[in-house]
Design a protein around this nucleic acid. Structure first.
Lengths: 213, 213
DNA sequence: GTCTATATTTAGATAGAC
DNA sequence: GTCTATCTAAATATAGAC
């Protein structure tokens, strides 16, 4: 229990303050549950266990388990959009883009955010409402990648040959798939190796696209 | 009900014949359930509905719902290994490889096999046994792609720079991720566009790797 | 807002008739 | 092998005390 605070109403703390904290804890618990047990292992009781919370709070604050998952999807999409926009802003070359991708990957994978997203996407198959919530987040993601690609490949032959929207979509899909694959094997070293290779190849492609006279 | 057949025992049909057919129908129903409802919507009763079968048959033939899903994973892995080995055998160039990939994609996506696999992989998070069953199938997949890549990129600089195992792993992950993404949006045209671009790029890379003197 | 208790539904699994 | 009936456990969701 956090320390009580004085409020204008005279109660120990405002309803909105306390409720907001509980809602945050519920979302955090839902993320932990999705990460460890997957969408198939999610239930109000399982989530409550992960956050040492009361099961009934799920329904009071979010109406249903699905409602809580939708909230997680929307909150994460917002956070992801901010993080990616900030990091991708200064990208000028393909090598830069791969480098930023590597950085984002390390943060997001370490925190398990991509695993959560992958499980939510899988869960979208059994809930149209959850599907809608997830879709918004994916679009924000692919749009940001697409904009970065547009800057990097502008005025190059590759930009004319390849539809950027498709590449962005493929990149987002690849991250999702890698996270799912990582769940079935031990992984961990594989992704770093992959990014090292991408770094080398992207450097070569940059040279091809922008020859140093 | 299929037509009864005479058997040595004098019964209408042998136990093994009938049992095998029911097991097949249960697996088919489980696939349909995974495709339409996702791993979160799977239950013995839901599966039974999809195949117009009795719920108790799941437990008689496979011991548990998880057992049935494991059987689906292993059966699909076998089928996939055969299909891929056959198609990939004659691949000599990167453009060939992309073309075969496109063909396989069209068949597998149309039948929903990749969607089933994606849901099984997501479900592996809540069942180590299912995870083990799925992992075998993924390894067979990535190994076949890796062998094809080794043939295509043999004696080229790219083969030396890029660990083939990682690329194969990434390709398998990409297919999984694309299928999951396709579940949340309308998709359908996106993949064809992506393969068209890949076809163009792979042709260029082939030219770079094997210049026509 | 949070807790306990509970009503209701659904899922996993088994026993026994056929 | 397949079916009906049923037991048990777990899940969703709500009511009411605090």
């Amino acid at each position: 229990m956090p320390a009580a605070r004085r409020t204008p109403t005279g109660t120990h703390r405002t309803a909105s303050e306390s409720g907001a904290e509980t809602r945050d804890r519920l979302q955090a618990a839902a993320r932990a549950c999705l990460r460890q047990d997957g969408i198939a292992g999610v239930s109000a009781r399982a989530i409550a266990r992960h956050g040492d919370l009361n099961q009934a709070l799920v329904f009071y604050h979010f109406g249903s388990v699905d409602g809580l998952l939708q909230a997680v999807a929307r909150t994460d999409a917002e956070r992801r959009a901010l993080l990616y926009a900030e990091r991708l802003a200064g990208v000028k070359t393909l090598k830069d883009l791969v480098s930023v991708g590597h950085q984002i990957h390390q943060v997001e994978f370490a925190e398990g955010n991509t695993a959560v997203l992958a499980q939510l996407v899988a869960g979208a198959a059994s809930s149209p409402e959850l599907g809608a919530a997830v879709q918004d987040g994916m679009q924000a993601w692919t749009t940001l990648v697409e904009d970065a690609l547009a800057r990097v490949l502008a005025d190059t032959p590759l930009g004319a040959v390849v539809p950027l929207a498709d590449i962005a979509y493929a990149i987002a899909s690849l991250f999702l798939g890698l996270e799912l694959m990582g769940g079935v094997d031990g992984d961990s070293t594989r992704l770093d190796s992959l990014f090292t290779s991408l770094d080398a190849v992207s450097g070569l492609v940059d040279l091809l696209l922008h020859p140093p006279t």
